[in-house]
């Protein structure tokens, strides 16, 4: 880790390090992991790490747009839990009518997508049209969704019908050419996110709105529409993540998705997106997600450091990333 920490202060050309910083950190982590445990680079472990990162990763790509446009969404973790609960309830309810099978899975998927879109729309509506601070709105909806899922589960666990579980399992555990579906979906979401951020008018507009919404408004950008869309996209991606998540355990409980929002935000920040908006990069977010899950994985695989220190190490990484961002800004 020391290599990545000390180099920025010596570097005079900020641009290179701005790009290389997160990549270097990831490379160092991979080297450290491989050195500590022979199994680290095994296909099974890599698949495991990537599949588990996919949920947060898919959400974090959406979060990148929200933060780039100057917003924030604290509700995604509870939203995921609520959507998971809803998806399970709908599938269980429709089971007697449709019977176990793929049509029912599609109904569940549709439920998740619609619920995600609506939840994103509600956040966006309150923030843009009603002009309430994003922090407050999403703090509120975070509590609402968390409470709703607890209520739906009556404090316990919502479980998918046992017969359905075996039908839906492949969504998490199968894949193409040995690559599991969550990894494929995460890769697709990340690639299209990067393309939109870098090459589409929407990405440019989001950065403009986050940089200075007045300039955007005076430049004929529909500021409210751009903001609204970032929240709706995030909601849809939360729906997608939930579709990947439900097959894994086949259940949802009040503890589902706890702290996902903070992990997603942390990944975005580690990746070099500015928390106050105006600049974002999706590939950085992907690296941020990988860094966070690798730390977790390495601590689990090695005996030297207690896995209970995971949170502390992640905290240090987040703070370091922000310090590096500040250095870069002073240089430019």
């Amino acid at each position: 880790m020391t290599a990545t920490e000390t180099q920025p202060s010596r570097a005079t050309r900020g641009v290179n390090l701005k790009v290389l910083g997160p990549i270097l950190a990831l490379v160092v982590l991979v080297i450290v992991g491989a050195a500590l445990n022979g199994n680290f680079l095994s296909a099974a472990n890599i698949t495991n790490v990537l599949s588990r990162s996919a949920f947060i990763g898919i959400i974090a790509v959406g979060m990148t747009f929200v933060i780039t446009a100057g917003g924030l969404d604290l509700s995604v973790g509870s939203m995921a839990a609520f959507i998971a609960g809803l998806m399970i309830l709908v599938m269980n309810a429709m089971l007697p009518v449709m019977g176990p099978g793929w049509p029912l899975v599609f109904v569940g998927m549709l439920t998740a997508m619609v619920a995600g879109t609506l939840a994103g729309f509600v956040n966006g509506f309150l923030i843009t049209t009603m002009r309430i601070e994003a922090f407050i709105v999403t703090l509120g909806t975070m509590g609402i969704y968390r409470s709703l899922v607890t209520w739906l589960a009556d404090g316990g666990t919502l479980s998918l019908d046992f017969g359905m579980r075996s039908v839906i399992r492949p969504i998490y555990f199968d894949g193409i050419l040995g690559i599991s579906w969550p990894i494929i979906v995460f890769a697709l979401v990340a690639i299209s996110g990067e393309l939109v951020m870098r090459r589409a008018a929407f990405g440019r507009h989001a950065a403009a709105v986050g940089s200075n919404d007045q300039v955007a408004r005076y430049s004929s950008v529909n500021v409210n529409r751009v903001r609204m869309l970032t929240y709706v996209f995030l909601g849809i991606l939360v729906g997608v993540a939930t579709i990947m998540y439900v097959p894994r355990l086949g259940s949802a409980s009040p503890s589902t998705g706890v702290l996902w929002e903070l992990e997603a935000i942390a990944a975005v920040i580690i990746g070099g997106t500015m928390l106050k908006g105006g600049f974002g990069r999706v590939w950085g977010t992907v690296i941020g997600v990988l860094i966070l899950s690798l730390i977790d994985n390495i601590l689990n695989l090695t005996d030297g450091v207690s896995p209970y220190l995971n949170g502390a190490i992640q905290g240090v990484i987040i703070i370091l990333a922000v310090i590096l961002q500040r250095d870069k800004k002073a240089e430019s």
Binding site: L195, R199, A200, A201, R204, A207, A208, S211, N212, V215
Partner: peptide, 30 residues
Amino acid sequence: KGRGLLLQKGMRENLTLQALPEFTNWLIDH
């Protein structure tokens, strides 16, 4: 400074911000 230009961005992004649809055909034509 407050309403005309994005001071933290480069000239290219500022120049085309208002006419971006003219430069976009699915993707922005760099």
